[in-house]
């Protein structure tokens, strides 16, 4: 039977990466992971019996991220202004500047839409699994995807 410490220690880099993609900030990502693995500890028996422990742990991170967003909504800027973005790089392409601009644009997308984009396009999860994770319908995932992509393109367009 898998041990909590052993499992979490091994999966920590992957969980941090998920949180970092969601938060866009490594400090906040670490905070989210810290809360998430605490919750995982309190529900370890259920987690250990889950069909897919990795999916369970990932879902805890995503839900913790969304919950933390709700709790601290008054202290943060939910959606930034497009003109806060850094100017577009001189040369197009997937270089570091483009990636940084894209990272910032993603952080300006509302949290739930951001979660859908990260889960679908960066973690390659199918729509059905994203819907289960976010406890919504597949139709909602698709509509949130569409809205999220439009928001990213809007942010990038405004910065150029």
């Amino acid at each position: 039977m898998i041990d909590y410490t052993e499992y979490v220690s091994a999966r920590l880099p992957a969980l941090r990466r998920v949180a970092y993609l969601l938060c866009g900030d490594e400090h906040r990502a670490d905070d989210v992971v810290q809360v998430a693995i605490t919750r995982l500890y309190t529900s370890w028996r259920r987690a250990r019996d889950a069909d897919d422990l990795d999916a369970y742990a990932r879902a805890v991170v995503v839900r913790t991220f969304l919950n933390e967003q709700r709790r601290s909504w008054a202290r943060i800027r939910l959606v930034g202004r497009a003109d806060d973005l850094p100017p577009a790089p001189a040369a197009a392409g997937p270089d570091l500047e483009t990636r940084e601009q894209l990272r910032i644009a993603l952080t300006r997308v509302p949290p739930r839409q951001r979660a859908v984009l990260v889960l679908r396009f960066l973690l390659d999860l199918p729509v059905a699994e994203v819907a289960r994770m976010l406890r919504c319908s597949e139709g909602t995932v698709k509509s949130q995807t569409s809205l999220g992509l439009a928001a990213v393109r809007r942010q990038l367009g405004a910065a150029q």
Binding site: L12, Y20, V33, Q34, I37, T98, R99, L102
Partner: peptide, 15 residues
């Protein structure tokens, strides 16, 4: 979103 696919947290973990 492809440029973000290999994005990793830049610093060491504090978890």
């Amino acid at each position: 979103l492809a440029p973000l696919r290999d994005l990793e947290p830049p610093g060491a973990s504090t978890v």
